[in-house]
Nucleic acid binder design. Structure first.
Length: 572
DNA sequence: CTTCCCAGCGCG
DNA sequence: AAAGCGCGCTGGGAAG
């Protein structure tokens, strides 16, 4: 069953569709539901296990969750449309060829007010300003239905380009389902939040920085380091937060650095360097995750960041607000399970190299990947057991290193693993030539900009050098894209499969865990003590399922490292 | 005053 | 130890 949900002046319009996006002949007219009734109506219809089709998950689902309504599956027209519009798998379709899409921000339909999340307290007036509803939504049920039908048609044609294998359609369909599931998971995780103990965070800050200072003042530890630096650098009014001032002060003291980056400062043995590095470390903690951050982002024991699905071209998620994907190790101790609960922190170990093995079907490297520690396996095969060397070489191949140790090791790696290295080399050459590349499930890299294409038509020698540099830079991007993008494909499937298993456990009446955090190749489940074993099994089964969904039954393992902890700092 | 960009550093 | 991919956030500082 397919149910389209569209914004409507009186609330929402609901329309039943067939699988290919036609109106259901038995029920061709949309049904208008008032904003107040919507959550109840949606809850009632969920027993038919429909796929909810909507313009954007973000427009509807957060408020439904707020009303206590969780849904099984959906289809996000905006996210799926963006994939289909750019995928190489659909490049030959009318859908991709017509540039006109629903993705422009200024075209967003307004969901009913009653379904919008409550505004932050400071802006309470907004609720009562302006008419209750904006102008008539620009996406009528008919518009959205046509968009869905067009996307399904593009998908149907995905396996039909000449000379391509038919399972491209299945892969793309899987990607759209995983992306849509991801959008729901993002909303659910934001709704649930990461368990965060404010008093533990404050204790950590006090230990590093001293007691909380008055607004606009440096904490005691930073103040003391500033005083020390001013003396050691003979600069009585130095502000160490200013790179320019700092640079001048360093030069006056004979410290000839070109930047004030940590690793360059570490070259110097001047007595001011140690306190300077300590200052930078602590200043970062204070600015990025100090008391101000805690006040702004943690409420009632939960950190509730917004995740941006599809926020990275490779398919990784981004986040908005609170720096959710950059929680520093220093403060992970504040992420703490509730009483009677554990945090299960699971990460896919060495995901990107393993994805490369599978993409390239490199059987030699697959042997190494049978080892739980892939780098150790590679080291044994071609680097005389030197794990560090093997790791640097392999990461260099994925990132496109040209210089340094990593660059030097490339020929050695290429001799041992011609298929794997050839795979990323090929992606690099295509990028340099201005072509797009594509992840396993069909997410394609953006085409080169007009400016880039123009640069390649250069005349003078100087322009040519610049053009070559830009071409190589794009080659590094596409080289990395095929691996990072396919790893993101895998992670999206892992997440969706895990969600399904956790939902099934809950439906069983089993005390199940909840997904509370996701970070590229890592998930966190907040779990009642009694459900830990089942949750771990779900995480591992989901990883295996994801591998098979992407690559079929190939002899490459995607092992998951699992830690059951009270607080996040105890993982890893 | 606001707006934008950069340097630097956090995460994978 | 480090220079190669993808991000977000901060404070400083220049531009408007």
């Amino acid at each position: 069953m397919y149910l389209l949900l569209a914004a409507h002046a009186d609330g929402a319009a609901l329309q039943e569709l067939t699988a290919d996006g036609a109106p259901d002949p038995a029920n061709p007219e949309p049904r208008v539901v008032s904003a107040g009734e919507l959550a109840g109506v949606v809850r009632g219809l969920e027993k038919w296990r429909p796929r909810w089709i909507w313009h954007r998950t973000q427009d509807w689902y957060p408020a439904l969750l707020g009303a206590g309504v969780e849904l099984e599956r959906s289809y996000d027209l905006t996210l799926c449309g963006a994939i289909l519009a750019h995928s190489e798998f659909t490049a030959h379709t009318a859908y991709a060829l017509s540039a006109e899409k629903l993705t422009q921000d200024d075209e967003l339909p307004q969901p009913p007010r009653a379904l919008q999340p409550p505004p932050p307290p400071a802006e309470q007036g907004v609720l009562f300003d302006a008419p209750a509803l904006g102008p008539a939504p620009r996406h009528s049920p008919g518009d959205l239905r046509a968009e869905y039908a067009a996307q399904q048609e593009a998908l149907r044609q995905a396996g039909m380009a000449t000379g391509t294998d038919a399972n491209r359609r299945q892969r793309l369909q899987l990607l759209l389902a995983a992306e849509s599931a991801g959008a729901m998971i993002a909303a659910e995780m934001q709704h649930t939040g990461v368990p965060w103990r404010e008093e533990l965070h404050e204790q950590i800050l006090a230990d590093y920085l001293g007691p909380r200072p008055p607004l606009g003042h440096r904490p005691a530890k930073l103040e003391a380091l500033t005083t020390e630096l001013r003396q050691l650098l003979n600069s009585p009014s130095l502000n160490p937060d200013s790179p320019q001032e700092l640079m001048r002060a360093l030069h006056r003291n004979g410290i000839e650095v070109k930047t004030t980056r940590q690793w360059e400062l570490k070259e110097s043995t001047h007595p001011a360097i140690e306190p300077l590095l300590a200052y930078k470390k602590l200043a970062r903690l204070h600015a990025a995750n100090g008391w101000t951050w805690l006040d702004a982002w943690v409420q009632n024991g939960r950190f509730q960041p917004e995740y941006v699905v599809g926020g990275v071209v490779s398919g990784r998620w981004a986040s908005r607000g609170g720096g959710a994907l950059q929680i520093p190790r220093q403060i992970r101790g504040a992420v703490h399970a509730d009483p009677g609960h554990k945090l299960i922190v699971a990460d896919a170990s060495q995901l990107e190299p393993r994805v490369l093995v599978a993409l390239a079907r490199d059987s030699k490297m697959a042997e190494a990947a049978r080892d739980k520690d892939l780098y150790a396996g590679i080291a044994a095969q071609g680097f005389g057991g030197d794990r560090a060397k093997a790791k640097v070489a392999l990461l260099g191949a994925i990132y496109g290193a040209t210089t340094g140790e990593s660059g030097r090791l490339m020929p050695q790696l290429a001799r041992t693993y011609p298929r794997a290295v050839g795979y990323v080399e090929q992606a690099a050459r295509e990028g340099e030539a201005g072509k797009t590349v594509t992840s396993r499930l069909g997410r394609s890299s953006p085409p080169p900009s007009d400016r880039w294409l123009q640069s390649q038509q250069s005349a003078t020698a100087e322009e040519q050098r610049r053009a070559d540099s830009l071409a190589r830079s794009r080659g590094r991007f596409t080289r990395n894209f095929v691996v990072q993008g396919s790893a993101a494909d895998w992670a999206a499937c892992w997440l969706a499969e895990l969600r399904r298993r956790l939902r099934a456990m809950r439906a069983d009446g089993t005390n199940a865990g909840e997904l509370v955090f996701f970070l590229h190749d890592e998930v966190m489940v907040h779990c009642p003590d009694g459900a830990v074993e089942d949750c771990i099994r779900a995480i591992e089964d989901a990883a295996t399922a994801a591998k098979e969904l992407l690559f079929g039954p190939i002899p490459v393992e995607f092992p998951v490292g699992v830690a059951v902890v009270d607080s996040y700092d105890k993982a890893k």
